[in-house]
Amino acid sequence: MARHVVATAGEIPVGGKKVVNPAGREICVFNVNGEHYALINRCPHEGAALSYGPVVGCFESKRPGEYALTRHGEMLRCPWHGWEFDIKTGQSWCHPESVKARTYKVEVVAGSHLAKGPFVAETVQVTVDGEYIVVEV
């Protein structure tokens, strides 16, 4: 496990995502209402790059004919067969226990803190007065 600096804080807008490549692993980092989450950029079904999928809410219903959109911006729909994943946990809507997209720990860390190391920053220039998105891989 190493901590990888993958973006500056604020670089990914709310509702946005960024594909990063720490340690040769393709990962998609999301900003869900100000919190950052990271999923492997590979659908557990047939391997689609999840980053092409739209970030959506949860389409729910209490009974036939009633519709409710909940958990705005917390779900990701796979760009191929449309399986829905909870961005925070990686769990799929249909089979939350058995089908999951791998998640990674993400933090926003102050540059001054990072200066104490250890961390890997391949593509991001780190300064002590910046804030950074760090993924643990």
Binding site: Y52, G53, P54, P79, W80, G82
Partner: peptide, 11 residues
């Protein structure tokens, strides 16, 4: 369909 372009793969 469930994705734009009458059901295209989004990538």
């Amino acid at each position: 369909r469930m994705s734009p372009g009458t059901g295209m793969r989004m990538d």
